[in-house]
Design a protein around this nucleic acid. Structure first.
Length: 116
DNA sequence: ATTCTGACAGCAA
DNA sequence: TTTGCTGCCAGAA
């Protein structure tokens, strides 16, 4: 209908949520990987922005499974408590040390490669 | 309308 | 190797 309708499901933000929710248990991915999967490529910042507003979604978004390409928990501060993100990852068997994911490369889940 | 910021990533020095 | 700047897109002031 008119613009009163909310944005289409194809909205960039929604796409990010969909991919994020597709991340398997005990796995993680990076912002750039998701951005690239969506075709934005260099717009990795938008992925972070989308997750930033993920709190607006009633659905639970496993944003703790999304980290930067260094495997660093850059967004841990956005989970309310700085230790929440690490705690969630640890709960899934992901070991985080010094705000960095251990065996990041092994735990890395690339949507381009997995969902291709 | 203009400017700045932001959960990143890539490249240059 | 680390540090800093730039590019990217969208939203808030």
């Amino acid at each position: 209908m008119a613009k009163s309708e909310k944005k289409a499901e194809n909205d960039f933000f929604t796409m990010v949520y969909e991919v994020t929710k597709l991340i398997p248990y005990g796995r993680i991915t990076s912002y750039g990987a998701i951005a690239r999967y969506l075709g934005s490529g260099k717009s990795a910042r938008m992925v972070g922005w989308a997750l930033n507003v993920c709190h607006s979604r009633t659905e639970f978004i496993p944003a703790h499974r999304v980290v930067n390409r260094n495997g660093l928990l850059t967004g841990k501060h956005h989970f309310g408590n700085s230790s929440t993100m690490q705690q969630l990852l640890a709960n899934e068997g992901i070991i985080v040390e010094d705000d960095k994911i251990v065996n990041f490369r092994e735990r890395f889940w690339d949507p381009l490669k997995e969902l291709k």
